[in-house]
Design a protein around this nucleic acid. Structure first.
Ligand SMILES: [Zn+2]
Ligand SMILES: [Zn+2]
Ligand SMILES: [Zn+2]
Ligand SMILES: [Zn+2]
Lengths: 142, 142
DNA sequence: CTTGAAGCTCTAGCGACTAGAGCTTTTACA
DNA sequence: TGTAAAAGCTCTAGTCGCTAGAGCTTCAAG
């Protein structure tokens, strides 16, 4: 018969925590595997493949809903247009986030710049936090 | 007597949603104001100042716990060493996040690069998602 | 005095897990 | 074969920083 994996084995093979795997099943991302006589999950090759896909997509920052869509598209052999749309959209979001974080980094750098010399000084950090007018930066938004 | 603000007024003055203000009170970040005869919150100048501080700090990405510490330090007139430590630590975290997101952006750019020409093609996105070995990037971590 | 806006409390939900309690099953070894 | 540790199970609750909604009371303007 075909090889099966206990949940702990699958966890090690994919560098995933055991509860996380159960969580993916719970939210419908990973299909529920068969159970053995003692009610324990027994995974097959297909689960391993899917879980690898999920984890790699997560590492690339895709959300679980996006991943669910990608898995469905993989299954359906549909045209790649929708796959591209999802990936590009995610890339756009990441670029937005980078832009916002860069602004933040600028603002924070300036915030702590008054403590640069290591000398005792009249530290402005609390004043700037209290009043954005003392802050040269824009840094709005999420 | 001194001016007081209803919660909605405070919300407008600080560009904060009303439930958010109540939430800050609930978690002990903003001190509970006095109530009028009808049990409604009546805020004073000090609350306005603190809430502005909180909101600006949030815009700069500080967490609520960090903000609580900063507020306490502001109160206590303590030396600025701890303030600096918190701010620098936060800046370090932001820089880490930027670095990680930049790697992500690289990886994602490459991921979608196969669809660059607009022409129909053998799209590799799903294959790469299925196998990090097809992926030239490191992009581990959060 | 009426009416609508604004306020109140309490509960639940978001995303993506993570941790723990309290149990059962499997596995390894003597 | 006995036993004990390791691994599995389910269920609940917590993380962070809000946000939304139900169902009520109070306030402010006309
Ligand atoms: Zn300083
Ligand atoms: Zn600012
Ligand atoms: Zn492509
Ligand atoms: Zn990869």
């Amino acid at each position: 018969m075909a090889t099966t994996y206990a949940i702990g084995k699958l966890a090690k093979l994919t560098d995933t925590k055991v509860p996380t795997i159960r969580y993916y099943e719970q939210v419908g991302l990973l299909p529920a595997p068969e159970r053995n006589a003692g009610n324990q999950r027994r995974y097959r090759e297909v689960h391993l493949q899917k879980l690898r896909f999920i984890r790699h997509s997560r590492q690339l920052g895709f959300g679980l809903e996006e991943i669910a869509s990608l898995l469905a598209l993989q299954e359906s052999q549909a045209d790649s247009g929708e796959v591209q749309r999802i990936a590009r959209n995610h890339l756009d979001e990441v670029r937005d986030k980078v832009a916002r974080l860069n602004k933040l980094e600028q603002a924070l750098s300036q915030l702590v710049s008054c403590c640069g010399s290591g000398q005792p000084h009249d530290c402005q950090i609390l004043s700037v936090l209290a009043d954005h007018n003392l802050c040269q930066h824009e840094h709005e938004g999420r």
